[in-house]
């Protein structure tokens, strides 16, 4: 029996939270993709919209496929931290 949060990272929900500054969900078993979130973060930085939006967005990319993808964001493997 798993003792972690599972299922897809709620990207749509995260994207609708325009005042969100911190989202961390490390060391769980969440799956899915956050590429869209990362793209929006980048665009909002470029446009200087919502200046504080997701200053910290930490998710992990462990687990079986489909892993959480976080190409724009900090990403942590269980044993070997890697920053993208």
């Amino acid at each position: 029996m798993t003792t972690e949060l599972t299922g897809f990272m709620p990207s749509d929900g995260i994207l609708s939270l325009e005042g969100l500054a911190v989202w961390t969900a490390l060391d769980n078993d969440l799956t899915g993709s956050v590429e869209q979130v990362c793209a929006v973060v980048e665009q909002r930085r470029i446009d200087n919209d919502f200046p504080g939006y997701l200053q910290f967005f930490w998710v992990d990319c462990k687990g079986n496929p489909p892993p959480v993808e976080c190409s724009c964001c900090e990403c942590e493997e269980p044993e070997n931290p890697t920053s993208f």
């Binding site: 003792t3 949060l5 599972t6 299922g7 995260i14 609708s16 969100l20 911190v22 490390l26 060391d27």
Partner: peptide, 29 residues
């Protein structure tokens, strides 16, 4: 040691600034 999913309904909470769900597997950090 929470389980289950995080719903996209979290987007209802429009005032959210900080959300932390780390380490619900109770592994050593």
């Amino acid at each position: 040691a929470l389980t289950g999913t995080i719903s996209n309904d979290i987007g209802n909470l429009q005032k959210l600034v900080v959300v932390q769900f780390d380490d619900n597997g109770k592994r050593s950090q």
